[in-house]
Amino acid sequence: MAWSKSGSRCTWIISIIFFSNVLETWSCIGIPDNHCACVYNDLLIDLNVGDIPVPLVASSNSSDSKDLYTYYVNPCKLLLEPTSLDVNCDKSSLCQKDVPYDDKSSQWYPIGSYTIEYTGVPNRDLQFHYGSQLFEGVYRGSVINIVCDEDQPVETLTFDGEHKLNEEVTEFSFTLRGDACCPIKHGGPNTALSAGSILLILFFVLLVVYFCGGMLFNKIGRGYTGVEIIPNYEFWSDLPKLVMDGWKFTITCGCRSTEESDPAYDNI
């Protein structure tokens, strides 16, 4: 069957939205009341629990003194805790400091706000994304790759690189490695059955009762045999076709295919 162009376009849009939502569920989900922590299935990553020395310090590797920088990171709090490093960094969790050369004094650059978003899953590709901050006409943000290492009790921070996305946006990447980055079994209140899970259980229990009770009633009370003992057999036999029609209508946004379009009127 050939679909109209608008129907095909709607199909692509709905498919993209659907798979985007599915992929989103494959990422670590932040915990509202616990900043710097996220949960994936029954695995919890909580950097607040680990005894991470702050601020973490990393350096860039460059033979040119003009490209030498030191990076200060407090992954779960603002850099002004416990003490302020520089006024430019008081509203940041990550900050960059250049090394003075010639007659130039050191300059501090905020490169990541307190806001965190999470992508990926623990033990594989988990990343903490820190919001971009505008400073001297450039938005600077950072990404920290979270790597579990149970044999490393003291967390280390490594500078991975600086990526200029465009003239106004720069992203810095780091790797945080240590045992505090390892997931633990999540045994908190979030492991309880959700309202959706309870509704699904009730639905399937009632569905079994409906079919078993209806079949017994039709068999014993009405004396039906064969497929007629199934309650509302006509409805259930038509259900696959109804579902197919509904799905077809949805993915085409109600647009009719070229084969289903109304024929032209006959000339009189």
Rank of each mutant, 00 (worst) to 15 (best):
W3C: 11
S4C: 13
S8M: 12
W12G: 12
S15H: 10
F19Y: 13
N21L: 13
T25N: 11
W26T: 11
C28D: 02
H35M: 07
Y40W: 13
D42H: 14
D46L: 06
G50E: 03
D51G: 04
D51P: 01
L56R: 00
N61G: 07
S65H: 10
D67F: 14
V73A: 10
N74C: 08
L79C: 04
P82Y: 08
L85H: 03
L85F: 11
C89G: 01
S93Y: 01
D98W: 06
D98H: 11
D98P: 05
V99Y: 08
Y101N: 07
D103R: 11
K104P: 04
Y109T: 07
G112F: 01
T115F: 15
T115R: 13
I116A: 00
T119R: 09
T119W: 04
N123P: 01
N123L: 14
R124W: 10
D125N: 15
L126W: 00
F128M: 14
S132A: 13
R140L: 01
G141S: 10
V143G: 05
N145G: 05
Q152V: 12
P153Q: 07
T156A: 09
L157V: 05
T158Y: 03
F159G: 01
E162Y: 02
H163V: 15
K164G: 04
T170Y: 04
S173N: 14
S173D: 12
S173M: 11
L176P: 00
A180D: 07
C182Y: 07
C182I: 10
P183L: 08
P183N: 06
I184E: 15
H186Q: 14
T191N: 14
A192T: 14
G196H: 13
L200F: 15
V208N: 09
G213L: 11
M215A: 08
I220S: 07
G223K: 02
Y224D: 07
G226C: 08
P231K: 03
Y233F: 12
E234M: 04
F235K: 06
W236V: 02
K241G: 04
K241I: 08
K241P: 00
K241V: 08
L242F: 03
M244Y: 12
W247D: 04
C253V: 04
S261A: 10
S261V: 09
P263A: 11
A264Q: 13
